[in-house]
Amino acid sequence: MAARTAFLFPGQGAQSVGMAAELCAEFPQARERFAEASEILGYDLLGMCTGGPAEQLDSTAHSQPAIYVASLAALERLDAESPDVVDNCVATAGLSLGEYTALAFAGALSFADGLRVVAERGAAMQDAAEAVPSGMVSILGMELADIETIVREAAQGEVLAVANHLCPGNIVISGTTSACERAAELAEHGGAMRVVPLAVAGAFHTELMKPAVARLEAVLETVDLRPPRIPVISNVDAQPHDDPVEIRRLLGEQVVSPVRWEDSMRHLLADYGIETCWEIGPGRVLRGLMKRIDRKFPCEGVTA
């Protein structure tokens, strides 16, 4: 009997110029995904993924649909090579943007509707990011309580919050540029192993993204959202949800709420009898995080 699997889908930042080139050269099904996507978006998404330029691919408006499509194209490869792995997937999760990929895989959204939502989400978040100079900083090797103290100290009346609980010793904060700079300095002097400003457009998963929420909720109302056929773990509360109304609400909330990835993975590993995880899509970030959450748990991957 094949192993029970869980699929993990990457979020923004996993993109790189050249992704999906080999995948689409070898698998017609992957090429078809990109062809359909380009028709919906009105531009050559595969050309941007394979040839750049990086500044264009890295913009939030483009990177979110690019990762969504590349991840589902990578899934086509896995389905062609190891259909039993796909058939035995019993639960799924995605990091921030990746939650939409997980919902599409689980049948809650069609590929086309998911792409339309993700494209609007990316454009809305890009616009919100450009309204206020802001960013995100990864702090490695510090306890959450210590980082929360730094956030309170560094905020000085500006927006600054814990944005991503990724794994033990890897927490991301998010806020105005000046508050992030103050927090980075405090973390460096406070014993952090590393402090890494992230190459993102703005302060995702904070109240600075509020202007994006209304646009996202509006487009979510236009698509057919169904109960997922397998559990999809929400970033907001690290729990699965069946009710499309609740899923819609949480997807709007997700933009301004911390991503509880470590809690999501612990729930996934504890409750579904899973024997192997697969990271599906560009990059290897989620496999690295899983090693920090449970070093012994096998996590394989199929890259875009």
Rank of each mutant, 00 (worst) to 15 (best):
Ala3Val: 11
Leu8Gln: 08
Leu8Ile: 12
Leu8Tyr: 05
Gly11Pro: 11
Ala14Phe: 07
Ser16Tyr: 15
Val17Cys: 03
Met19Cys: 04
Ala20Ser: 14
Ala21Arg: 15
Pro28Arg: 06
Ala30Asp: 01
Ala35Ser: 15
Gly47Val: 09
Thr50Pro: 00
Gln64Val: 03
Pro65Leu: 05
Ile67Val: 14
Ala70Glu: 04
Ser71Trp: 05
Leu78Val: 11
Ala80Val: 03
Glu81Tyr: 01
Val86Ala: 09
Asp87Asn: 14
Val90Asp: 03
Ala91Lys: 04
Ala93Lys: 11
Ala106Tyr: 08
Gly107Met: 08
Asp113Ser: 13
Val118Met: 00
Arg121Asp: 01
Glu130Ser: 14
Val151Lys: 02
Glu153Asp: 13
Gly157Pro: 09
Glu158Cys: 09
Leu160Glu: 08
Ser178Lys: 15
Ala179Gly: 12
Leu186Gln: 10
Ala187Lys: 02
Ala187Cys: 03
His189Val: 01
Met193Ser: 12
Val196Phe: 05
Pro197Val: 08
Leu198Pro: 05
His205Tyr: 09
Met209Tyr: 11
Pro211Phe: 15
Val213Gln: 08
Arg215Ile: 02
Glu221Asn: 15
Glu221Met: 11
Asp224Cys: 11
Pro227Leu: 04
His241Pro: 06
Val256Met: 10
Arg260Tyr: 04
Arg260Pro: 03
Trp261Phe: 09
Glu262Leu: 03
Asp263Asn: 10
Ala270Ile: 01
Asp271Ile: 01
Asp271Gly: 06
Thr276Met: 08
Leu286Arg: 13
Leu286His: 14
Gly288Asn: 06
Met290Gly: 08
Arg292Ala: 02
Phe297Ser: 12
